[in-house]
Design a protein around this nucleic acid. Structure first.
Lengths: 67, 67
DNA sequence: TGATTTTGTTAAATATATTTGACATTGAAT
DNA sequence: ATTCAATGTCAAATATATTTAACAAAATCA
């Protein structure tokens, strides 16, 4: 799978570290790393949490970044 | 969680039964039932497959239907 | 350079998504 | 009223998402 660069960009734009985002969402830092690196298939609930924490939508962050 | 009526509507609009959709995506009928009933937290990959099979986007089918 | 924060890696444990199978219910035919 | 397709329910098994922990590699800055 391809890396989720859009997520990484949105996070950096918010001035948040991976740990910041993980804490805001209530998951582990490793989970954020895994999503950004793309070797991963997160649940829709987690994706929604990420989107809300970053002020983005599902289509913006999770639509076409892998096959 | 609330039922995903948007998904059900999109499926019916395509003239597909739950089994049709399940076959098209490559999952079990029970999985489709569970998603439509909302007592469920599917993976993003599965959500994408559903969207593509129904010609919809993530925001259209999976954005706000639960809390 | 050295210290500190941020990111990345790995392996094992746990929680949960998904499957399998078998049966119950509903609704629309005939 | 009965047949049949579509939907729904349940429990057990399996696959996989997520956690936990401990450490390595970069990156940033004094």
């Amino acid at each position: 799978m391809a890396k989720n660069l859009k997520l990484k960009a949105a996070r950096v734009l918010k001035g948040m570290t991976q740990e910041d985002l993980a804490d805001a969402i209530g998951v582990t830092r490793q989970t954020i790393i895994a999503i950004e690196q793309g070797n991963y298939n997160p649940t829709i609930r987690l994706c929604r949490s990420v989107c809300k924490a970053l002020g983005q939508t599902l289509d913006e962050l999770f639509w076409e970044e892998d096959s």
